[in-house]
Design a binder for these strands. Structure first.
Lengths: 338, 338
DNA sequence: CTGTTAGCGCATTCAG
DNA sequence: CTGAATGCGCTAACAG
């Protein structure tokens, strides 16, 4: 009467066989859809399973099969861009693997996160946007096939699926230059994945257009908060740029917020460009022009790589996806005269 | 030489014992930190484990122990509010359980999500913000202790941890009324958890203040996108309200966006209030006045309930947390005259 | 303190 | 199609 006191234990295969009036092997065959049972038996077993509430024990299964059928995914819960990738990962099912998620949260780093995944004997690990040093990545990849998503790294044994950050940022910078902007500020992403490449790309592209003197890099971050703070500093000190390129869309949203709070118009006074094409880019006060990373495709490729590595069908390599410019309303011609 | 071809299989306890020159039982004792081994042996075994890269197989462990030590968590990846709760869940460790995450994404519903969790024999399931019909919840709770977070439901066997939505929305509505607002619109959350209670609370509170005629409920949603669309409709048709209460902070952010795009000032022309006190509330263009749900506490309580239910230490019940008003800048006195 | 033994639930032989 | 037997890697008695 206690509501949900589970009736003893979960039923086992033996009990299922009893209930169905057949041998355990037959019951097993039916439960995993293997050949070797008549349709009549199949129905009888399935009905019995339904009736007694039988549910295969994955632990026993995978132990016996000697493969877990699991791909582990470590990601930052609080990062919307990661959430998009995780959605994509689930959307790309059909390889016979299940996904098991490990969340990285403040105080719970990569190592802590993947430990349980390894203990469950995941056959591959997909690590999203981690800044772990190469040496550590290498060590992990020695224990399990490792697919690193959204970060560039050159380490034997580590598979990489990423967007061309350099090319993407070049697109962004040249878009602004093409609109006539010269005084352009770049809001840096610090230690976050891709930040170094994008920063370098910004500087190089500015230099290539003879605008090195106008290229200003300010330290920022990957959150709205940091976008706001960085922009406040930017407005306080020195000459105001006519365009700001941000590390990602969240930071760009912060830039937008601070500019408007300061009474400036976007894009009339200042143009803003982001990176990622995250969901928030579309619903920002001024819809953001940004560099689109195709998370669906990245996820699909990452999952394929993980499954392939698990089956030893190929060796670790690098897949670089091409980003593209998505023009919305946050960028416009550089203001003339002043 | 292939980089990361895992050297055969993972080492087993037997191999560890061999490497350490002791019996498997001793090795086992050491690995799980059980009493019954000398410090010298302990060190010898730990060193050997490190050397051969031994890592206990959780599947075998939990199978043998006959308890998985797992709490399953089902949540919507794309929902920032859920992400906050998940962070809180991890932060509340120390009950001897590990967390295993199941992500709900479009096309992957609750049932699909918890199936793997059940197959792994999680000892309890924490389900965040699901709108599953009561009958289904009951069925799940018959297979595993179930803690429902952030939704009200009265079902035997289903444990509930939620915020007082009714009281929270009353706080919001009375805050606006207290500021002199009379024409107040409520942007409804449709089918989402808590929506019904908040909607009813809005109507009741308006009625209690004799403002039924001014209470306007418009259909909205729980995203920025829907907040924008609903506000656009709101502005097109009928008299403009002086205040808008939204189902949650994301929708409220959309409201803000649309109002400002329409050339209105917040809070001078229109006040806006949200619900949740999600992270975005602080960085919104106009920092949002909102009803704070303490996700850290909710998560802590939810995890305690889950662990307690798993150990049959108490029966399913309902824990209701008290929300509070967080005043920021998006609400102000009703505009006078007009 | 240490070693031996018997399963946990299931998949997979193999001989009927 | 069936039933019995074996063992995946580990823990938990129990006996030395």
């Amino acid at each position: 009467m206690a509501g949900s006191r589970r009736s003893r234990q979960s039923p086992t295969l033996v009990e299922l066989a009893e209930a169905a009036g057949c041998s355990t092997s037959l019951a097993s065959i039916v439960m995993r859809g293997a050949p070797g049972a008549s349709d009549a038996t199949r129905k009888r077993v399935m009905d019995a399973a339904e009736r007694i509430g039988y549910r295969p024990d994955e632990r026993a299964r995978s132990l016996r099969r000697n493969n877990s059928g699991l791909i582990g995914v470590a990601y930052h819960v609080a990062e919307p861009f990661h959430a998009d990738l995780v959605e994509g990962l689930y959307g790309a099912e059909g390889d016979g693997f299940d996904l098991v998620l490990g969340a990285m949260v403040p105080g719970r780093d990569v190592e802590k996160t993947i430990e349980p995944l390894l203990r469950q004997r995941c056959e591959a690990i997909i690590l999203i946007g981690s800044m772990l040093p190469v040496a550590r990545l290498r060590r992990i990849s020695e224990e399990s096939p490792l697919v690193l998503v959204a970060r560039q790294v050159r380490a034997t044994g580590v598979d990489v699926v990423r967007t061309d950050d350099r090319g993407g940022q070049r697109l962004a910078t040249e878009h602004l230059i093409g609109l006539g902007h010269r005084a352009i500020a770049y809001l840096d992403g610090g230690q976050h994945p891709g930040a170094a490449a994008r920063r370098r790309s910004f500087r190089d592209t500015m230099a290539a257009h003879g605008l090195s003197d106008h290229a200003r890099v300010v330290s920022g971050g990957n959150t709205e908060e940091e976008g706001i703070r960085a922009t406040r500093r930017l407005l306080e000190e020195g000459e105001r740029p006519t365009a700001i390129a941000a590390f990602n869309d969240r930071a760009a949203t912060g830039v937008l917020t601070m500019l408007i709070r300061a009474g400036l118009r976007v894009p009339e006074d200042v143009s803003v460009i982001g990176f990622d094409d995250a969901r928030i880019a579309r619903t920002a006060l001024t819809p953001l022009t940004t560099i689109r990373q195709d998370t669906t495709l990245m996820a699909k490729v990452a999952r394929e790589r993980a499954a392939g590595l698990a089956h030893q069908r190929f060796v670790a390599g690098e897949q670089v996806l091409v980003p593209e410019l998505t023009e919305r309303e946050s960028t416009g011609p550089a203001p003339t005269g002043r």
